[in-house]
Amino acid sequence: MAISFILLLLFVLNAADGTHIVGGRDAAPHSRPYMASLQVRGDLNCGGVLLREDFVLTAAHCEISIPYTVVLGADSLSGNEPTKQVFSVARSIPHPNYDGHANDIMLLKLDRSAQLTDAVQLIPLAKGRLRISSQCITAGWGDIGDNNTIANRLQEVNVTTLPQRTCRMKWRTVPITRSMVCGTGGRNLQGFCSGDSGGPLVCDGAVAGVVSFSGPKCGETKTPDVYTRVSCFREWITGVLNNN
């Protein structure tokens, strides 16, 4: 009887531990003021980050024909926080060479400039290539249990980047190019999931990657999470911003 109770208690504790961005945690309120949620009719579609007052960086596979609503300054998807700012998208600009996996990056021009506050801030682009085993963070409102359960509050998880060769060996079904970077959590089943697409890989306070794709099971180390490597697209990003 005592053994059964202990097993039941362990099951409950393990289940509770897995109810965040797949093995992550609640982000402290407004600790990620660059985060944007891309919504369609009030439902989460993707994440993104604010690069300039009128531009959000996200993934090209988030491109849809239905108009987006971009929400800044909110920790909760459903709450009506006084810090929240809501925008329409004037223009979406996916990378011209996006092919379904490679070059998975897109810029969204907002219908007006955001007002920078404590809860709404810009994030810089990472400079240079990431070091192997960089300690980073990814964040989003996506599936928290790999079961179509969207997070209400912003979640985050620690990520360690992997050597390119290691990622290629694990991902034999998809070509891993130099414009991609892979990362894993500290344990299995820890990482991003559905709805986190377009969100950032943040390393040393700068956006170094954009959430692109993962394997059939979220956070599984057999198929590491794959991000678009931002440093490979600095020239394209800068060109788009300068021309707009």
Rank of each mutant, 00 (worst) to 15 (best):
T83D: 14
K84W: 04
V70C: 09
T69F: 00
S92L: 05
I66W: 06
Q85C: 13
F55R: 04
S92V: 10
S92M: 12
I66N: 08
I64W: 00
P67M: 12
I66Q: 10
C62K: 01
A59I: 00
P67D: 13
E81M: 09
S65L: 13
R91N: 11
Y68C: 03
S76C: 04
P67A: 12
P82Q: 06
S88W: 08
K84R: 15
S88Y: 10
H61W: 06
F87S: 08
T58F: 02
C62D: 03
R91F: 06
S78T: 15
H61A: 06
N80C: 02
H61D: 09
H61P: 06
V89G: 07
L57T: 03
A59P: 07
V71I: 14
G79E: 13
Y68G: 07
T83W: 14
V71Q: 07
L57K: 01
P67R: 10
A59W: 00
V89L: 12
P67C: 10
Q85T: 03
V86W: 04
A59E: 02
I66M: 11
T58P: 02
A90S: 15
C62V: 03
A74E: 07
L72Y: 04
V86H: 13
C62Y: 03
F87Y: 15
Q85P: 09
D75H: 15
V70S: 01
V86M: 14
V86A: 14
I64Y: 01
I64C: 09
R91K: 15
H61L: 07
K84G: 05
F55D: 00
S88Q: 13
C62M: 09
G73T: 03
V70T: 01
V89Y: 02
E81H: 13
T58A: 01
E81R: 09
P82G: 01
T58Q: 01
P82S: 10
C62R: 00
S78V: 14
S78F: 10
G79H: 13
S76P: 03
S92F: 05
L72K: 05
A60R: 05
F55S: 02
K84A: 13
S88G: 13
A60C: 02
P82I: 01
L72Q: 05
Y68L: 11
T58Y: 04
S65M: 09
V56N: 01
T69N: 14
L72E: 00
V70E: 05
C62G: 09
S88C: 01
V71N: 07
P82V: 00
P82M: 00
V56T: 05
S76D: 04
S76E: 05
I64F: 00
G79C: 08
T83R: 05
